[in-house]
């Protein structure tokens, strides 16, 4: 099999699997939220309500796709696609199993960080082009939140890079096989990256850009139909992305006892973190905006710097 064909097959399969996961996360989230709130959730359509996803998709495709007259049409169209494109691009560098990744980029980690920064454009442009003050407020919040959390998201990962000695995600996973899973030496880095990841996907409890109670769902107030759906799929893809990054960087990627194939280990670990995302949504209230910012700049940034300095020092001393 030629390498080109192999790449194409892997790309298509990864794309299909990711879209399936993202779509089914609608069901997973609704069911799990319901269970944690002592309800049952959607259980009518098909066995366990699994076909609910199809029902939701049919519904959202047949909804009127209304564009407000005051909106900036081209930008309004482009904004929802950006989030999906950037998140899917980030998946290109993630190694799902040895040899199964779209590209084996030697600056994979930097590529991920760059792409997740670009994702901010989606929210900002969506809010701006809606020409609606609540949307604009939401997108301003999103921009400030995501850019400031981006800073120590990157910094918190530098400890991992120091330990592994590489920006290549494949090398990082293999280094975890040699040393140990990085959440043990990098527990602070894991902690900061996880919180920054929540803020980056603007999920609850850090969903201030779309705070329903104050901003009538913020940057996507004016969106309807499948454009709104794309923001949603983008959000679920974002959860999947952050979960798989946590697994790759801190929980040994595809590594695991050999009775299961590596891809299954990867997906299992990823599922656990996706469920933790949902659990956080079920459990925690949303902080005030100034609390979010001061928490980020005054607590998480020093913490990640400290983590970086201590990791560098220890690695130098052990050499």
């Amino acid at each position: 099999m030629s390498p080109l064909l192999q790449t194409i097959i892997i790309t298509v399969v990864v794309l299909l699997v990711l879209m399936t996961i993202a779509a089914n996360l609608i069901w997973v989230e609704r069911r799990m939220l319901a269970l944690w709130q002592d309800r049952l959730g959607p259980n009518r359509v098909g066995p366990l309500g699994l076909v609910q996803v199809v029902a939701d998709m049919v519904k959202i495709f047949f909804k009127e796709d209304w564009i407000p007259k005051f909106a900036d049409r081209p930008v309004f169209f482009i904004a929802p696609t950006i989030v999906i494109i950037t998140v899917l691009m980030s998946f290109a560098v993630i190694p799902f199993a040895p040899g199964i990744s779209v590209v084996n980029l030697n600056v994979g980690l930097l590529f991920f960080l760059a792409m997740s920064s670009l994702g901010v454009y989606s929210v900002v442009l969506g809010g701006w082009s809606s020409n609606n003050k609540y949307s604009l407020l939401g997108s301003l919040r999103a921009a400030a939140q995501m850019i400031s959390y981006e800073v120590f998201m990157g910094l918190s990962l530098m400890g991992v890079v120091i330990l592994a000695g590489s920006f290549n995600l494949n090398d990082i996973v293999e280094a975890q096989g040699r040393i140990t899973w990085f959440f043990i030496p990098q527990i602070l880095g894991f902690f900061v990256f996880f919180l920054a990841g929540i803020a980056e996907t603007h999920r609850l409890p850090f969903d201030l850009p779309e705070a329903e109670s104050e901003l009538i769902s913020g940057f996507h107030s004016e969106y309807s139909g499948m454009k709104f759906g794309m923001f949603f799929v983008g959000e679920y893809l974002g959860i999947t992305l952050i979960s798989s990054m946590i697994v790759t960087l801190f929980f040994g990627g595809w590594l695991g006892p050999s009775f299961l194939p590596p891809v299954v280990w990867f997906l299992l670990k990823m599922a656990v973190f996706i469920l933790i995302f949902v659990l956080l949504r079920a459990a925690l209230p949303r902080p005030r905006y100034d609390q979010l910012m001061s928490y980020g700049w005054k607590f998480l940034l020093p913490l990640s710097l400290l983590n970086l300095v201590v990791t560098g020092l220890v690695v130098l001393l052990l050499k």
């Binding site: 319901a34 944690w36 002592d38 659990l279 956080l280 925690l284």
Partner: peptide, 12 residues
């Protein structure tokens, strides 16, 4: 978070 998690085992 832990207390919310325990609700998984309650009857709906």
């Amino acid at each position: 978070i832990w207390l919310t998690f325990l609700h998984l085992f309650r009857k709906a």
